[in-house]
Design a protein around this nucleic acid. Structure first.
Length: 376
RNA sequence: GGGCGGUUACCAGAGUGGCCAAAUGGGGCAGACUGUAAAUCUGCUGGUUUUUACCUUCGGAGGUUCGAAUCCUUCACCGCCCA
């Protein structure tokens, strides 16, 4: 994987760049749709390519390991072959599931013991076997196995957790360097900065990771319950230290405003379930603000979903029609909302890129943060 | 003409003397959702009130009772059966 920095904004830390993988290039800043179980929910590949302009999607190690399972993925020849997506894929390591499935897992020095949320069976993830699994899945970008502590963790827990994540990083990186991809194309490995909301821990984490010299670096453990201002502060602290010539990936974030603030602070890559999950729950993000499509006020609004929206569905369907679909529990509602939201998110990051290159990012961003946060 | 059953909030439907402004489901109105255990979850849904509380309500009218959606009388309407 290569990264070329095209331009750094003069007034802010925003950057425009280009990631090259064996499955194609990615223009940054970029939003990456989440496809946890080998599928971006309610959206198929033609739509991802043509309507959404997705350049890279995510998969999840924990979920794919449980279903369809490694034997199937290996027989398929990797995830790209299995789901038909021939552009880049990034897999999360399962570190987030250590956090979100905390009720059914046990943390140990060696790794994390899980119970499957599907059938209750016991499984053990280590920094090493998570690398092995991601080799079998065959993602272009693989992630280190980390612990993602809750946003309200106290300092002592955060410190202990970070030190575990760092030991796990060394073990994972060692395994990654000792092994090779199974399908003939290159894979890369991103470490993850942790440290909760404590600047000194974040700094220490970023320094530790910067020394590893990986192709890209991730910031994790944010947007997990801490105040938004803390999140922005942590991004600033970390990005002062992370190498500028490597892409920076802010994991799991966030709202359109969150993404714009993070781009301003030098982040290049984003993923979040919000456009798809909230979309399925009736929330639409647009460049003029947020709409709850179940609200009655749309019932007789026959104007297009978004007249100048990023996707064709915005003009094909009216607000009244989409509301009707949601209220009637029609599956088409989930499809339209997911396509719309993902297209908007990808558009937002690519539009940010254009403004970085044009030199007016700061002004554009200030206006956009207001607009996208409005409740319509 | 006779017999039986029924009429409860927006809809369906429980409740058969006080714990009933009335279960439950649907519908309606709003909110939440950030590396997806999520086409999910939460709240409200007679009126006034922050709560307590009070007022109005269970087809209509009248009655019994300390007290009625619940018991009695009667009227209206609906359904089924017999003529």
């Amino acid at each position: 994987m290569d990264f070329k920095l095209h331009h750094t904004d003069t007034k802010t830390n925003a950057r425009a760049g280009e990631i090259t993988t064996d499955h194609g290039t990615i223009l940054t800043p970029i939003f990456m749709p989440v496809g946890t179980v080998a599928s971006v929910k309610a959206v198929h590949i033609q739509e991802l390519k043509n309507d959404i302009n997705a350049q890279i999607i995510l998969g999840n190690t924990y979920h794919l390991y449980l279903r369809p399972g490694l034997d199937i993925l290996e027989k398929a020849g990797g995830l790209h072959k299995f789901n038909g997506w021939d552009r880049p894929i990034l897999t999360d390591s399962g570190g987030f599931q250590v956090f979100s499935l905390s009720a059914i897992r046990k943390l140990k020095e060696e790794g994390a013991e899980f119970r499957s949320h599907i059938d209750g069976s016991k499984h053990f993830f280590t920094p090493e076997n998570v690398v092995d699994i991601q080799r079998i899945i065959g993602a272009d970008i693989t992630m280190a196995f980390d612990e993602c502590p809750p946003g309200d963790s106290d300092y002592n827990y955060a410190k202990k957790s970070l030190e575990l994540t760092q030991r796990w990083l060394d073990r994972g990186l060692k395994r990654f360097n000792e092994t090779e991809g199974k399908y003939g194309y290159r894979q890369t490995f991103f470490p993850i900065v942790q440290g909760c909301v404590y600047p000194d821990l974040r700094r220490r984490a970023a320094e530790y990771i910067a020394e590893k010299g990986c192709d890209g670096n991730a910031i994790g453990g944010l947007a997990v319950g801490e105040p938004t201002d803390k999140m922005y502060e942590m991004i600033e602290v970390v990005n002062e230290i992370l190498p500028t010539d490597k892409p920076r990936y802010l994991m799991g974030v966030g709202t359109p405003a969150n993404i714009l603030e993070a781009i301003e602070r030098g982040v290049d890559m984003f993923d979040c379930v919000m456009p798809t999950r909230n979309g399925r729950n009736g929330m639409l993000f647009t460049k003029n603000g947020i709409m709850n499509m179940r609200n009655k006020k749309w019932a007789d609004d026959f104007s297009p979903i978004e007249i100048d929206g990023a996707s064709e569905v915005d003009r094909l369907y009216s607000k009244a029609y989409l509301r009707h679909l949601f209220v009637s529990n029609e599956l088409l509602a989930l499809q339209i909302a997911s396509i719309h939201n993902l297209a908007f998110y990808v558009w937002l990051t690519q539009e940010a890129r254009h403004h970085i290159l044009a030199g007016d990012f700061a002004e554009w961003k200030r206006v956009m943060v207001q607009r996208v946060s409005t409740r319509l």
